[in-house]
């Protein structure tokens, strides 16, 4: 990941954040992300994000679990090694429903969590930059990415005007890297203090 320049601003109230997002986007700035300490409903729509398809993945994992259970149990008990339980049919579907259900849930849950971690690139020993440590405490941090066309001073003034506080320009490497939070990180030979 390349090192890019960002203008970051801190918002203290959702009521200020929402109109600010609207204004910043309308003015043509590229909002890199908004970091919040808790989920804010509607903010994803305001930032122009699409709905996530994670639940569809969950459904697919779920039916994979059901299919795995029924095909394996069916094969094991009705084809591979038939055991006569009191003359009942070898293919005794009702008795398999509990395990089919459990595997559906298991596959779906495990698959979804792994997919979630993959999509968000979350894992132990992964380190990311989120501009301001207060964004996991009490404020909402908006980061505007500076492109070739962005005038830095203008952007800072604009963000201040929209209600942001502690507005500043920061050079950061986006994305993630392997690292520990108790150590300073060397990014492309440039030292950045641990947040």
């Amino acid at each position: 990941m390349a090192i890019k320049k960002f203008i970051t601003g801190n918002f203290y109230d959702e009521a200020v954040l929402f109109p600010a997002v609207k204004k910043v986007r309308r003015a043509g700035y590229k909002v890199h992300d908004v970091y919040t300490p808790f989920p804010i409903h509607g903010l994803d729509k305001e930032l122009g994000m699409k709905d996530t398809d994670l639940h569809i993945a969950g459904f697919i994992y779920g039916i994979t679990g059901t299919t795995t259970a029924i095909s394996f149990i069916g094969w094991a008990l009705a084809l591979d090694w038939q055991i006569n339980f009191g003359g009942k049919p070898f293919f005794s579907l009702p008795a398999w429903i509990p395990i089919m259900f459990e595997l559906t849930v298991l596959f779906s849950a495990v698959g979804m969590v792994l997919t979630f971690c993959w999509l968000c690139q979350l894992a132990p020993f992964v380190k990311k930059d989120h501009f301001n440590p207060r964004s996991t405490d009490d404020t909402f941090v908006m980061a505007i990415e500076c492109t070739d066309k962005t005038n830095e001073e203008e952007a800072i003034a604009f963000l201040k005007n929209a209600g942001a506080q502690d507005v500043q320009a920061q050079s950061r490497e986006t994305g993630w890297w392997f690292g520990r939070y108790d150590r300073e990180t060397v990014q492309f030979g440039k030292k950045v203090a641990a947040v």
Partner: peptide, 11 residues
């Protein structure tokens, strides 16, 4: 796990 509180992640 390197959680940041990104809006997309929250979604």
């Amino acid at each position: 796990f390197g959680w940041t509180g990104s809006t997309k992640h929250w979604q």
